[in-house]
């Protein structure tokens, strides 16, 4: 319910901005966190929804930075490889992403860190991935406080 109300309160502009970021993120999500492809469709949708909720808490300036950086990644891919990211081979994808990850320009590294962290948040924050990564925390005992 809490989640619904946060999204309900967003302006149409902000909602559109968030959906744009999610659409742009889809291009990179599986490469950055391959585990995403092991999730069922409802789990993948839940991962996207988690991102939506996180982005809803961000201010306009942060959302603009993310959008600009994702466009920059797409643009650089088209300019340097003449193809969209999803059409590249695994090796080509890795080389391209490495250019952002280890860029000599600090701003580029920080921008990529933001995108990469969003991808990690979408997947690793879901409790449905716990069995896939063999993460088994002790269950909370009942009736203790």
């Amino acid at each position: 319910m809490a989640a619904l109300s946060v999204l309900d309160e967003l302006s149409p502009n902000k909602r559109a901005q968030i959906e744009r970021i999610l659409a742009l993120m889809d291009e990179y999500l599986v490469f950055l966190v391959p585990l995403f492809s092991e999730l069922s469709m409802p789990q993948q949708n839940q991962a996207r929804h988690q991102l939506r909720l996180f982005l809803a808490q961000q201010d306009g300036a942060n959302l603009r930075l993310l959008t600009v950086f994702l466009h920059l990644m797409n643009f650089w891919c088209l300019v340097s490889r003449r193809r969209r990211f999803r059409s590249l081979t695994q090796v080509q994808k890795d080389r391209l992403i490495q250019q952002f990850f280890a860029s000599p320009i600090g701003l580029v590294r920080k921008g990529f860190w933001g995108i990469n962290t969003l991808a990690k948040l979408a997947v690793y924050s879901q409790d449905c991935v716990h069995p896939l990564i063999n993460y088994h925390p002790r269950p909370t005992p009942k009736g203790i406080s």
Binding site: L35, I97, F101, Y124, L132, Y135
Partner: peptide, 25 residues
């Protein structure tokens, strides 16, 4: 730490990251 906190703090991405986190135990 927990899966996302750990992942966020690892300097990396992709298959390498998944490989390590899948070995959580």
């Amino acid at each position: 730490y927990f899966p996302f906190t750990l992942a966020k703090n690892l300097a990396g991405y992709g298959a390498d990251l998944d490989w390590l986190i899948k070995r959580f135990p």
